[in-house]
């Protein structure tokens, strides 16, 4: 496979994952806004924009936080390079670039959804359409992943796509956790108040983990439990541990297909060692923020090493 094609697959799936994660954030924000009074709702939207990492751009454009402004900014603002529309445009652009490395089913899943999304986002999205729009975006991701699982050859391309997916997902979860920790919980003494339960519930919803968490914890909700779940539970597909294992499998498969290991495998092994003895108490002893910073750095370094090892660029 061409290095450029591998790069295209990697980024196609990173952008897809990023668009999906942003849609999940919006979904959680919408739900919060529906259950709060107007003043708190404003705070919620501020928090959604901050979590999506779009605060600077948003505040350059808008002086206040309202739901309508916020979701339209995240969904379709032309000047926002991280809008869902723009990211999905990147997904499709990369899919065109690697058209002969993906199955027809996957291409059609991406292309059809892009056409529908472009149409739905061609004008501002009103209150009574926003949930539908978010649902369309999530369906697009589901369809693409389904097409990939059901029709893609398990060759190196599949593993580059997987690597892109899990590096992006891990990065997004770590960022959500980090931002929530600082923004919403300046001190652990607030734990247990009804506001914070709501905030933590939103964190879970942002990664579609609310249901799974409830099942595992019989409705008990606290910061430590959530951190443990989102960091260490390798049964939950949106935990750091799960992303880590999945990425390890992708990298191992790539090394096997190429008959040799590279820098990315070495970095992965080092990260393995760090993850192996981890429990939630050691995370908190180390400091959650410090842990997340380390994790994010290591995750990004693996991404860069993959690009090097497999000649993504000339």
């Amino acid at each position: 496979m061409l290095g450029r094609t591998a790069n295209g697959l990697f980024w196609m799936f990173r952008y897809l994952e990023r668009a999906e994660n942003t849609a999940r954030l919006l979904d959680a924000g919408l739900r919060m806004a529906l259950t709060r009074d107007l003043v708190t709702a404003e705070e919620e939207w501020r928090s959604v924009i901050a979590t999506a990492g779009q605060r600077e751009g948003y505040e350059a454009k808008h002086a206040s936080y309202t739901g309508m402004q916020a979701w339209n900014y995240v969904l379709r603002e032309k000047e926002n390079p991280a809008s869902i529309l723009s990211m999905f445009g990147q997904v499709r652009q990369n899919a065109r670039l690697v058209r002969n490395a993906i199955s027809g089913e996957l291409w059609e899943a991406i292309n059809e959804n892009w056409l529908e999304m472009k149409d739905q986002l061609s004008r501002p999205v009103p209150e009574n359409r926003v949930l539908d729009t978010v649902a369309t975006i999530r369906r697009a991701g589901t369809l693409a992943h389904g097409a990939m699982a059901g029709s893609m050859l398990r060759d190196e391309g599949y593993h580059f796509a997987g690597a892109g997916t899990f590096i992006e997902r891990a990065d997004s979860i770590a960022r959500i956790l980090d931002i929530k920790y600082y923004l919403l919980l300046p001190s652990l003494s607030y734990v247990g108040s009804s506001l914070d339960t709501g905030q933590w519930d939103q964190v879970l919803r942002s990664v579609s983990g609310d249901r799974a968490y409830r099942w595992l914890n019989a409705g008990q909700i606290d910061a430590k439990g959530i951190c443990e779940f989102l960091i260490l539970d390798d049964g939950f597909p949106r935990s750091l541990a799960f992303c880590h294992s999945a990425l390890r499998a992708n990298l191992a498969a790539l090394a096997r297909l190429h008959g040799s290991e590279g820098e990315s495998n070495a970095l992965m092994r080092a990260a393995d060692t760090r993850m192996a003895d981890l429990n939630i108490d050691t995370v908190f002893d180390q400091g959650l923020h410090e842990f997340l910073i380390d994790f994010t750095r290591s995750n990004a370094a693996i991404g860069r090493a993959i690009a090097q090892d497999y000649r993504f660029l000339a």
Partner: peptide
């Protein structure tokens, strides 16, 4: 390219290596 099972290359993927035109693949 897809239908033939051939690579789809751009100029930037190619260079002359050891007297042949060669494409930059993930393994060289």
């Amino acid at each position: 390219a897809d239908q033939m099972g051939a690579e789809l290359v751009e100029g930037s993927d190619l260079r002359v290596v050891d007297g042949r035109v060669a494409m930059r693949t993930t393994s060289g």
